[in-house]
Amino acid sequence: MNYKNVLDFMKELAFGIDRREFCDREAVTELPDSFDDETRTLEEDDDGNIVEIDTWIPPARSTATRMPPARTKGHSRGALVDPRTYRSVTFASTHEMCCAMILIASPHIAEVYDQPPAIEYTDAAGKKRKHTPDYLAVDHAGRKCAIAVKPSRLVEKSGIKNTLASIRPVLGDYAEDIILLTEHQLTPGHANNAESAIHAQQCRIQEHCDRVLEIVHDAEGELNAYHVAGLFGDFALGMNAIWCLVYDGILELADPKRMLSDYPFVIVSPLRGVNRSVAA
């Protein structure tokens, strides 16, 4: 056990959670409702019995205008699946991966497009150029924002700020704005919380989310997520439901810049409230 595991264990004890209590428990076999009627088929088994078969449907391909280059020694390449659109979203660096996770997990974002079409612009020297944003985020009102991702050490060298300044006047209907994000905005805390919310959504059990809503329906101010999960009756399932409600925007992290394990407090969103449907 390394020092990080020890510190995590000590933090859990400080909040009243002792993982040793769960060691002798039986595994939870309840599964989320991942399938619907459209993915179920009736087939005949070897004994002639009619059985229901759940068919796995793969996520849709990325809409990117170009795929990430092959992996290099110093960079990561890959793709995530957006639970809202069930579509792959690619990334070509660790910073882009963090950005993709944060956008996908945001309750304010309806769709995320990776490597959207290039924007034509004229640079300061009067030369025609093209720039492909890393992402195009669309909110629920249809407003769009183009995003460029760069490590801060390359911002000045790449001249990206001048490029974005030349692009803004010619954006038109492409987007309302184009912004630059670096590791200063795409922090490990933000990314870790986003990843937890995405993973929880993939194992969502709506009944559990409804039970957590009943627990917090009249609460005000900051709530200890660990305490709420304890009241739920099963800590792991309760925490998964809490993350799903964070994904929905019904619960908000009290300090989104910090990992929930470091500051395990949430608040009921004043904008969404607990009377709104979880699926709203």
Rank of each mutant, 00 (worst) to 15 (best):
T187Q: 09
C145P: 00
T187M: 10
R129A: 12
G221W: 13
V212D: 01
E207W: 11
A146L: 10
I198K: 01
D218G: 08
G238N: 03
G142A: 12
Q185G: 09
R204A: 12
L164Q: 07
L223N: 08
P169N: 04
I205A: 07
A141R: 11
E222Y: 08
S196K: 07
S196F: 01
R129I: 11
Y226D: 03
L186T: 05
E214R: 09
I205P: 02
L181Q: 04
N193H: 05
A191H: 01
E183H: 03
K157G: 09
A141V: 08
T163R: 04
V138Q: 13
L237E: 10
T163H: 13
A200C: 07
K150P: 05
T163I: 07
R204C: 06
F235E: 13
A241K: 00
S158R: 09
G189A: 08
L223P: 15
A229T: 10
S152Q: 11
E195A: 15
Q185A: 15
I179T: 10
C209G: 05
G189D: 01
Q206G: 06
Y174W: 05
E222G: 07
G233H: 04
S196C: 05
K161Y: 11
K161L: 11
L181R: 03
G230L: 07
C209K: 01
S196D: 02
Q185T: 14
N162S: 15
D173M: 03
Y226R: 02
I160V: 15
V149W: 04
H208P: 02
L164V: 15
D177W: 11
V228C: 11
G221C: 10
E176Q: 13
E214F: 06
N240L: 00
F232P: 06
A219N: 06
L223I: 06
H227N: 02
H131Y: 15
C203T: 07
L223A: 02
G221F: 12
E220C: 12
I179D: 05
H199L: 00
Q202V: 00
E195W: 02
A137F: 02
N224D: 14
C209Q: 00
A229N: 09
E214N: 06
R153Y: 10
V155D: 02
S196P: 01
A165D: 14
Q206T: 06
I198V: 05
K150V: 15
T163L: 05
K150R: 15
A137I: 05
N192T: 04
